[in-house]
Lab assay of single mutants.
Amino acid sequence: VTLFVALYDYEARTEDDLSFHKGEKFQILNSSEGDWWEARSLTTGETGYIPSNYVAPV
Rank of each mutant, 00 (worst) to 15 (best):
R40L: 13
K25N: 09
A56L: 10
Q27S: 08
D16M: 14
Q27H: 13
E24I: 02
R13P: 08
A56I: 12
Y10M: 03
Y10L: 03
G48R: 02
E15G: 14
W37Q: 03
G48K: 02
L18E: 01
N30A: 08
E24T: 08
N30L: 07
T43Y: 09
L7E: 04
F4S: 03
N53A: 12
G48D: 00
I28R: 04
L42T: 08
D16Y: 15
G45M: 08
S31G: 09
W36L: 08
Y10T: 01
A56S: 10
N53S: 14
A12M: 04
E24S: 04
D9P: 07
W37E: 01
G34P: 13
V5R: 04
E24H: 08
P51N: 10
E11S: 12
Q27I: 15
S32G: 15
E15A: 15
A56N: 06
W37D: 01
R40Q: 12
T47W: 10
V58R: 03
V58Y: 14
W36M: 13
Y49M: 13
T43C: 07
S41A: 07
Y49C: 06
T14D: 13
V5P: 00
Y10N: 03
A12D: 02
V5G: 03
V5K: 04
T43M: 10
N53W: 14
L7T: 04
L7Q: 04
E15Y: 11
L42Q: 11
T2M: 13
V58G: 05
E11R: 10
P57N: 05
A6F: 01
A6W: 00
Y49R: 14
Y8V: 08
S52K: 15
I50N: 00
A56Y: 10
T44N: 06
A6H: 00
P57E: 11
G34T: 12
E38H: 12
W37L: 08
W36Q: 07
A56C: 07
S41Q: 06
S41V: 06
Y8K: 09
V55H: 01
S19F: 04
D35R: 09
A12V: 02
G48W: 02
Y54S: 11
V5A: 05
F4I: 03
L29C: 06
T2S: 15
S41W: 02
D9C: 05
T43A: 12
T2C: 07
E24A: 05
N30D: 12
P51V: 02
E15N: 11
W37F: 08
E15I: 11
S32R: 12
V58H: 10
P51G: 03
S41N: 14
Y8T: 07
G34V: 12
Y8E: 08
L18G: 00
G48C: 01
T44G: 03
D35N: 11
G34F: 13
E46T: 09
Y49D: 03
W37K: 03
D16R: 15
L3G: 04
D16C: 07
A39I: 03
T44Y: 03
N53L: 10
E33H: 15
D9T: 06
S31I: 12
V55E: 01
D17I: 11
S41C: 06
Y8D: 07
T2D: 12
L42I: 11
Y8L: 09
E24F: 04
A39H: 00
L18K: 02
L3C: 06
I28Q: 02
V55M: 09
T43G: 06
E11A: 12
D17R: 12
E15M: 14
W37V: 06
K22P: 04
D35I: 09
S32P: 10
A12E: 04
